[in-house]
Amino acid sequence: MSCHNCGSTNIHEGARFCPFCGTRLKNEINRKHLIKYISLPVASFVIVTFLVVLGYKHEENVNAQVVDQQRKAEELALSGRYEEALSLLEAAKKDRTDYSVLKKEMDHIEFAQDISEQINDVNDHIKNTEFEEARTQIKTISKQLQGENTVLLSPLKANFQESSTNVTVGEIKKEINTLNSIDLLSDKLKSIAYLDNVEAAKVENQIVTRMVELSTKQAEDKLSRNHFNEASYIIEEALQYAVNNEKLISLKEKIEQERESFLVAERVRIEKAISAAKKEEEKNKNKAVEVKKLNVKLDDFGDAYIEGEVINNGTRDINSVVVEFIIKDKQGKEIEKGKTNIFPNTLHPNETGKLKHIVYGVKKDIKMEIRNMNWYLSEKEGSPDE
């Protein structure tokens, strides 16, 4: 050891003052001993610090992993994959058993899963038209959702609202399916004013669809019987509610086309009917009566008995048929000229009348020639078009 003041050496290690100059010696420790003295605690500090940092980093990584799993679980739950979300949180709980947020998150997901299943039950009831059961469950869900505002419930609340709307729509649809007139359906349309915009739009669509269906059926029925005005009126009334409906517009065009075709056909039919009526009338006036039989018998006294039949080939009754005739012998010499009445006085269509005449004292074979026939037509019943 040496004195830092006078430079003297070989001073005793434990001396506090220099024996040569009396200066207080500095309490220096041999560097080698100093290094030995301080190296162990420093090394211990460094190791401990490293371990602490390493542990912190590990915990930090675990925390980050747990937070990431929690985030992914929430995303899964928001998409409706509840079982996957719960499995992910169960795995995260093993790393953080004391992390109460995970337990709370799991409770939220299980609650959301239960609500989702109940909404599915409501939708099943709607499909089966079990609206009373659906309405009861809607009330139960509504009570459960009161005061619950977690993020996980946001999509479920939208689904719940839609299902609730569908119950209302289903109930009204079930009722409107029993209504069979546009007036009743329009009254029902006015009665939905209490619904909100979404519900009203759905119900209005159902009512208008029913109007289109009903009016189309009724108009087609009228059209099949050529009641064009009635069919057209039905379609026009429906178009007031189903504006620009393609089906109704198409049927309206069909009605007008068939009306025009019918009118053309009707004109042709009437023209043909008039022509046929004229021909028929001509026949009734000029060719209705035809001689079917004409026999002449000569008795022992030389008298000739003439008998015959005439038929009404017309389409109307005829009256007072008179036959003009000439009696000749075999050589063509005229013996008698005259008229005779056919009986009965009135002949219906396709009915035959009798002709009888006697020529006295001819004493030879004769023949009767019909020169002309006259008759009257009975008055027609009804109008000429019938």
Results as ranks from 00 to 15, higher is better:
residue 181 S to D: 04
residue 164 S to R: 03
residue 115 I to F: 06
residue 98 D to G: 06
residue 169 V to K: 09
residue 174 K to T: 07
residue 150 T to V: 03
residue 85 A to E: 00
residue 89 L to E: 11
residue 188 K to C: 10
residue 160 F to P: 00
residue 112 A to S: 15
residue 155 P to I: 00
residue 96 R to V: 01
residue 81 R to V: 05
residue 119 I to C: 01
residue 154 S to V: 12
residue 130 E to H: 11
residue 81 R to G: 07
residue 113 Q to G: 10
residue 182 I to D: 02
residue 136 T to D: 14
residue 102 L to C: 03
residue 78 L to P: 01
residue 194 Y to T: 15
residue 169 V to C: 06
residue 164 S to P: 03
residue 83 E to I: 12
residue 195 L to Q: 10
residue 198 V to M: 04
residue 95 D to G: 11
residue 180 N to W: 07
residue 125 H to G: 06
residue 125 H to E: 15
residue 84 E to L: 03
residue 119 I to L: 09
residue 145 L to G: 13
residue 151 V to Y: 02
residue 127 K to N: 14
residue 105 E to H: 12
residue 112 A to Q: 08
residue 118 Q to R: 15
residue 178 T to A: 04
residue 189 L to A: 02
residue 90 E to Y: 05
residue 120 N to L: 11
residue 170 G to Y: 04
residue 133 E to C: 08
residue 109 I to E: 01
residue 192 I to T: 10
residue 165 T to L: 02
residue 148 E to P: 01
residue 99 Y to G: 07
residue 178 T to L: 13
residue 101 V to S: 11
residue 98 D to C: 03
residue 76 L to I: 02
residue 133 E to A: 10
residue 127 K to Q: 08
residue 88 L to R: 07
residue 101 V to I: 11
residue 153 L to P: 00
residue 114 D to K: 09
residue 116 S to W: 11
residue 187 D to T: 06
residue 181 S to T: 14
residue 158 A to C: 00
residue 138 I to Y: 04
residue 119 I to E: 01
residue 132 E to F: 07
residue 144 Q to E: 15
residue 156 L to K: 10
residue 142 S to D: 08
residue 183 D to H: 14
residue 112 A to K: 07
residue 128 N to K: 15
residue 140 T to G: 05
residue 79 S to L: 09
residue 95 D to R: 11
residue 169 V to I: 08
residue 75 E to G: 07
residue 89 L to C: 06
residue 142 S to K: 04
